[in-house]
């Protein structure tokens, strides 16, 4: 049955269903227990599953991520929450050097089936400022050995998190902060959404808008805006940053011959840069116009409301970029 749920509720459904299905699933993180999770994703789970399955950790990111790695090597299915994905910076040694590499360094003799999850980007609430609202996607997506995914709607959030928990590889699950409290359709049944498949979220024929996570919402809003002006935009949700599934985007560009990549991350060296590069090498002869990017501005996330809005990509910029590609 399809029901309306906020994204954090969809994620909560995924955790709860997987914890019932598989006793090896254990949650670790800061304030995920009686506090119910800062962004409500673990709400009610401590009461239902108890302290051995929902483990509140001290503020020791490096070490509780490492605990997750050790538990995963032993066959448990740890799901480790970072309160904000920004705090990965405290745990990067465990993420990069251990979680991502133990399979390879052991010649495939060990695996680390864990999920590292948490919200990234400027939201749900405004004013998160420079150390709590960053979009650090590329740090994970750069590293072989990790799977890196980000859902763009409530349905995918649930199905992808369930798939991530069942995956035998380490998965970094990036929850789009700006969408955390947004409502949408979710199936209350047991279903999985693949971790390595991009999807067309809106059909169109004139220009391709490509995003992942929260930027897909910008693309969809821009597509509606463009339609009012008679421009048909197709929206591709990458869903996975590692591996990148370029097939839907390439097929779309073969049809539209134009593309804009939208990304909350800083533009330079960001995920959008990689997607543009793939389009250049694999869709060059289909393109009628340079591929454009709309991305985060090159500043730390500022506090003042007007500056924060300026720093983020917005619908108007996407619409303008799409129109620019159509001028050629």
């Amino acid at each position: 049955m399809i029901i309306k749920k906020a994204m954090h509720e969809a994620l909560n459904m995924a955790l709860r269903e997987e914890m019932i299905r598989d006793p090896r699933v254990v949650l670790l993180g800061e304030e995920i227990g009686p506090y119910n999770g800062v962004h409500y994703v673990t709400r009610g789970l401590f009461a239902e599953f108890g302290k051995d399955r929902v483990i509140d950790t001290p503020i020791s990111e490096e070490s509780f991520v490492g605990v997750g790695v050790g538990m995963a090597m032993m066959g448990q299915r740890p799901v480790v929450e970072l309160m904000r994905m920004d705090f990965c910076l405290r745990a990067m040694d465990q993420i990069y050097n251990h979680m991502a590499k133990i399979r390879y360094m052991s010649g495939g003799r060990l695996s680390v089936p864990m999920v590292l999850r948490g919200p990234e980007g400027p939201g749900p609430n405004p004013g998160l400022t420079a150390q709590h609202g960053q979009q650090l996607t590329v740090l994970f997506a750069h590293c072989p050995g990790l799977r890196v995914v980000s859902p763009a709607n409530q349905h995918d959030a649930k199905g992808m998190l369930k798939a991530a928990i069942r995956c035998d590889d380490p998965v970094v699950f990036l929850e789009p902060g700006p969408l955390n409290n947004k409502q949408g359709d979710v199936d209350d049944g047991d279903y999985l959404v693949p971790l390595d498949q991009a999807e067309i979220k809106h059909d169109g024929s004139d220009v391709t808008l490509i995003g992942y996570g929260a930027s897909v919402s910008l693309c969809l809003q821009a597509a509606r805006e463009l339609e009012r002006g008679g421009v048909s935009a197709e929206v591709v949700d990458m869903r996975s940053l590692r591996p990148l599934d370029m097939a839907p985007a390439l097929a779309s560009v073969a049809k539209t011959n134009r593309a804009v990549v939208v990304d909350y991350a800083w533009q330079s060296y960001g995920p959008a840069a990689e997607i543009v590069s793939r389009l250049m090498s694999d869709a060059f002869w289909d393109l009628e116009s340079p591929v454009l990017r709309v991305a985060g501005k090159e500043s730390p996330l500022p506090y003042a409301a007007n500056l924060e809005e300026l720093s983020k990509p917005n619908v108007e910029e996407v619409v303008a970029a799409a129109k620019q590609t159509l001028r050629n």
Partner: peptide
Amino acid sequence: GGDGIVGGGISIATGVGLALKQ
């Protein structure tokens, strides 16, 4: 393992111990 990072295995061992306990 075998770990190339000074202190890198200490939390992992803690996780292994926690798994044994669970």
